[in-house]
Design a protein around this nucleic acid. Sequence first.
RNA 1: CGGGGCGUAGCGCAGCCCGGUAGCGCGCCUGGUUUGGGACCAGGAUGUCGUAGGUUCGAAUCCUAUCGCCCCGACCA
Length: 575
Amino acid sequence: MKLTQFFLATIKEAPSEAEVVSHQLMMRAGMIKKLGAGIYTWMPLGVRVLRKVEQIVREEMNAAGAVELLMPVIQPAELWQESGRWDKMGPEMMRVKDRHDRDYIVQPTSEEVITDIARQDIKSWRQLPVNFYHIQTKFRDERRPRFGVMRSREFIMKDAYTFDVDKASLMKSYQGMYDAYSKIFTRLGLEFRAVNADTGNIGGFASHEFQVLAESGEDLIAYCPESDYAANVELAEGVTPAEPRAAASAKLELIATPGQKTCEDVSAFLKLPLKKQIKAMMYMTDAGFVLCMLRADHMVNEVKLGKVPALANYRPASPEEIEEYLGVEPGYCGPVPRHGSAHPGKVIVVADRTAAAMADFVCGANESGYHVAGANWGRDCAEPDVIADIRSVAEGDASPDGKGTLKLRRGIEVGHVFALGQAYSAKLGATYLDKDQKQQVMEMGCYGIGVTRVVAAAIEQNHDAKGIIWTVAMAPFSIAIAAVGYDRSAEVKAAADKLHDELTAIGIDVLLDDRGERPGVMFADLELIGIPHRITIGDRGLKEGAVEYQGRRDAAAIKVPVADVVAYARAVLAD
RNA sequence: CGGGGCGUAGCGCAGCCCGGUAGCGCGCCUGGUUUGGGACCAGGAUGUCGUAGGUUCGAAUCCUAUCGCCCCGACCA
């Protein structure tokens, strides 16, 4: 491809609305163009990258035994009413009407349609298992689209759906997709982790997210460098401390802490580490007023709270309710009873596993302006009513698999595999006849890759001050030729054209910068758009029969004899 | 949806307080000089000042409404 025949529109300054590097660089490189909030046009350069990603996804899906089909973007409401998601989905699902005033949706995903296909066309156990996938436009009316194509409303997703005879077979299909995803992200050259994920309210029984590690990620994942343990922080287990609770050694004392409301205040005021303190979080739940106790440096995990029976349907308690149940204002609350309560004995104490194992701790005294020190469970207050894992794990915590300590990294979720079970197949009646001629409900799995998001995630992970750095697998062009003086030197033009034709002939995606621009302009553009390899041809080098090669990450160029350059290019691309 | 902010040339911004009929940088066009790390000189084009009302002799500027966009918050590829 010659640059003058292509369409390249780079800009020096990124639009001010672009917050994250991937968005800024995609805009600057002219890969995407915004049409509306969370809606983008993929410009020619961007489409080339998108197609490379799609191709790798397609190859690996096919290799894993999945078959491609293509389901409509616009789907009739009836199917979604049948599955119950017409009501469940809420405003995130885009609804439209046709000329007959009939309801349709713009697909956010395709479980309904694929299950409808399965129930129509699959009748026998002999047809199972089967794995369908498509690469199709999705629309989710996000409450807050942001970060360019990282969280856009319209995006492209590869979604696959498996149908199996039973759970054991489903788990094989699931594992097959898990392995395929690992291959895909490895081929794309991404640093990623497959992490255990929350199965949420759909009620599936296995789920992993594929997270690309990047500082700008919206997810937090915990992993263990000494083992293969990795989980989303919303799920990662905070284990019970190995050391049992120490015996009480200190005397309970009341300490005046006027105006010291936060744990940090108290910690500084008493010159005591946060780890010696317990903090209180108050909630109203179906069971009544709940006082949650955590070590002061730990963070409550709201996903975990929701799973504790005593905290069913919890909401933060109001200051009035706290006053009513504990007889004190927020900031001085604790498990040690002191002042009168309008509901004596009606406070349910839920302690985190770590907090429950502490002795001689500091906490609120349930009296305004006072804390207590040397407090102990069972001596100064009752043992907790419930001990549960209610905090988010922190860096340095013991790994739940007992093989070391956890580290935390931010991640961008680019893929998700989910063993669904019969949630959709039962609702829509996707059944088959087994060997004993009995009707059975199919077991389903669903598997997604955010194709457009993968592009942004790759940039988040691979860029420098000059711009994007693509791997050859994703690059819009594998190699660029910067022809210095293309417009005025017949020798340069001839050499550059010849190299361009030769590389093209052996199937290499080459971009020849034939604009006749000054070298600085060419280099800056080619670096910004991230072409992994560059060959510079100029009069200066040609005089000694050489061109220059420079990798996108290399600090300097090296000379290559003109005669060897095709072989050289082939060699660097093979690495 | 709740809270904050912004809409002026393709992009980045100034002008608004204190009304007087729109400007800067980049980019773009023409000509010339340049040509190995985003060149220089000269000339030039481009604006419903988000939209609609209102106040006023006069509105980018003040008032009202409306639309759009961005940022911070209860979950998705």
